[in-house]
Computed example of a mutant assay.
Amino acid sequence: MRSPKFICRSVVAGVLALLVTAGAAAPSSADPDSASTSPVMRVSGAGGGYLGPDWPGMEGDPVRFEIDGRATDPLHPSGSFHVVHRKPDGRLLAEFSGHLTSLVSVDEVAVVTGVIDAAEHPDVPLQFVGKPVAFTVYDGGAQDRIGWAWGFFGAPVSKLQGTAPTFALTDGGFRVEGGPRPRVAQGNGPKVAVQAEGDGTTVAAVLGGPSRSSRGSMRFELAAHVPAGGDPTQVQGRFQFRDHGASAADFEGRLSCLVAGGPVAITTGVVTKSNDPAQIGKQVSFSLKDGKVDRLGWLWSWSAAQPPIADCMSTVPFYAPRWGGLVVQS
């Protein structure tokens, strides 16, 4: 079983290691609407379904996932994962399991990474053991979802980063626990207006609020669209991020990849204009969750010494805006 083609082929440089490391702490340290953070983050459950047309040659194959993990420190979780992929006639294509290397959860969304310890793959001539994997889990109640990236297929996997949960489970489900709880209701201030783009995937955001990291306020805008049947890297759209605090960050750019699964979207882009010339040309990523509590996550790539940002990979959405909101339509 492999992840969608856009993940397998893309290796894009840069991400801020400090934010990845603190990305675990980001829900509590960067989210101004957090009254408290659960000391334990958990992901548990099992579920599966049948691959669709996004996986040519594997359409109709049954797949199943099991994850059981917990963490108080997102970079030092405990737990395991187990994946089984069969052909429609029951023949085993691949089965592998391993231990977790990172786990972060906020509201209904979790990003989990791990390393394969044992594998059986009779007709797949690849090295599985020792390769990293990533899962994004959406606990949607009646409709849970999962997304994945496989290191054995060449997908770049960094801790605390995952893609959108594009695969809808038809059997079983997952429970996601932990993360911050919003202190105040959202909805004051500008509203998001999304114009009809036809079929495809559309994401829009106009939001902001206090920024604890800079002791000021931030404003974020994004508009993105991928036409129906289009590759995620065919996205059209732009973003702008302004922090009016001590960091005085002010940059904007074009998007390079967009993928959505249910109410969760992951998008990456390149900075084209900034008040800091050193940021121009750098890669950034955003995660967005359109829910009862809208949330935004982000990663920057200001230093080449930091882990890479790959196309359509980001951290869990952690920031709950004080005003505005976002929309994910797919």
Rank of each mutant, 00 (worst) to 15 (best):
K5F: 12
A13T: 13
L19E: 11
A26Y: 05
D31Q: 02
G45S: 03
G48D: 08
L51P: 02
D54C: 07
G57F: 07
R64A: 15
F65D: 06
L93F: 13
L93C: 06
S102F: 03
S102A: 15
S102T: 12
S105G: 09
V106H: 07
I116P: 02
D123R: 15
D123V: 15
V124P: 01
P125F: 12
L126C: 07
I146T: 08
P156S: 06
T166F: 08
R181S: 12
Q186R: 06
Q186L: 04
P190H: 09
V194D: 02
V206L: 13
S213A: 15
S213G: 03
R219N: 11
F220Y: 11
A228L: 14
G230T: 00
D231L: 13
P232V: 06
G237E: 03
R242K: 10
D243Q: 05
A246Y: 08
A248W: 02
A249Y: 12
F251A: 04
E252V: 04
S256A: 14
G262E: 00
V264H: 05
T267W: 00
V271A: 01
D276A: 10
P277G: 09
P277M: 10
G281P: 03
G291L: 03
K292T: 15
A305V: 14
D311F: 11
M313S: 10
T315F: 04
F318E: 02
S330H: 12
